[in-house]
């Protein structure tokens, strides 16, 4: 196996497994840069998505001021192209993680880059919950927390998993750009060690690895969505 790789994909083999430029390192960095922004950006997105739906006119906590604040924050961050966001928030990144470059530094812009996208998706997912269900819960004397957890989040859970899958895949796409601030990852391998050095075999293998990662996320996401759904759609 390793002989075959050395023979047909010489540049792939020369990068090795570990070390700064190794494949193992790049795969780990991509997973690392996907996982933490997914958690942090996911939570932020969920909170903002919920806030948008709850404070919207006709929502259970309708409040024009809060709605406008959330709406503008989400729109603002969505409007900034990610590659610019990386540079734009560098001072903020420095403040949070103590450095502007490297894999950990990339977590901050990645989280901020993915949260507005997710917030909008969550907003759409939660709005798919029939208003009648909210009204029925209110008529039963449910508290706002009951409505958030037992109606909105519970009823939209399949839809939330679906939009999370979409967001996760788009996040994997964003990690490829993090190489711009020295964060490494498969995207960086494809560009820095593949494309820039005319090592096409490296580019192809890095791309395939990203594709496999996306495929796994998609399959698991689809399976979960189906599993969690007890409604006809």
């Amino acid at each position: 196996m390793s002989e075959l790789i050395s023979k047909y994909l010489p540049n792939v083999a020369s990068l090795g497994w570990s070390g700064d430029s190794g494949w193992g390192t790049a795969i780990f960095q991509t997973l690392y840069m996907t996982f933490w922004p997914a958690v942090i950006g996911g939570l932020l997105g969920l909170v903002f998505g919920l806030a948008l739906v709850l404070t919207k006119e006709g929502g259970i906590l309708a409040n024009r001021v809060w709605f406008n604040i959330c709406d503008k924050v989400v729109s603002f961050f969505r409007a900034i192209p990610f590659i610019i966001l990386l540079a734009f928030i560098a001072p903020f990144t420095q403040l949070i993680v103590g450095t502007q470059i490297g894999t950990t530094a990339a977590l901050v812009p990645l989280s901020l880059g993915v949260f507005p996208f997710f917030a909008r998706q969550v907003e759409v997912a939660l709005e798919s919950v029939d208003r009648g269900k909210i009204e029925a819960a209110q008529a039963l004397g449910a508290t706002n927390l009951d409505i958030i957890f037992d109606v909105y989040l519970s009823e939209a859970r399949a839809e939330l998993v679906r939009v999370s899958t979409v967001t996760l895949i788009s996040l994997i796409g964003l990690t490829a750009m993090a190489g711009a601030i020295g964060a490494g990852g498969l995207g960086n391998t494809a560009i820095a060690y593949g494309y820039n050095r005319f090592n096409n075999d490296v580019t192809v293998v890095a791309t395939l690895l990203v594709l496999i990662l996306v495929l796994i996320v998609q399959l698991v996401g689809d399976w979960l969505t189906k599993r969690l759904n007890h409604q006809v759609r």
Binding site: S154, L228, H230, Q231
Partner: peptide, 24 residues
């Protein structure tokens, strides 16, 4: 608030489209 929620529990209501929770 809580007083209204408590009062609402003494008034049942049913709807045209049932409005059951489908995921439980």
């Amino acid at each position: 608030g809580a007083a209204l929620q408590e009062k609402r529990r003494t008034i049942g209501m049913i709807f045209q489209h049932f409005n059951l929770l489908n995921e439980v």
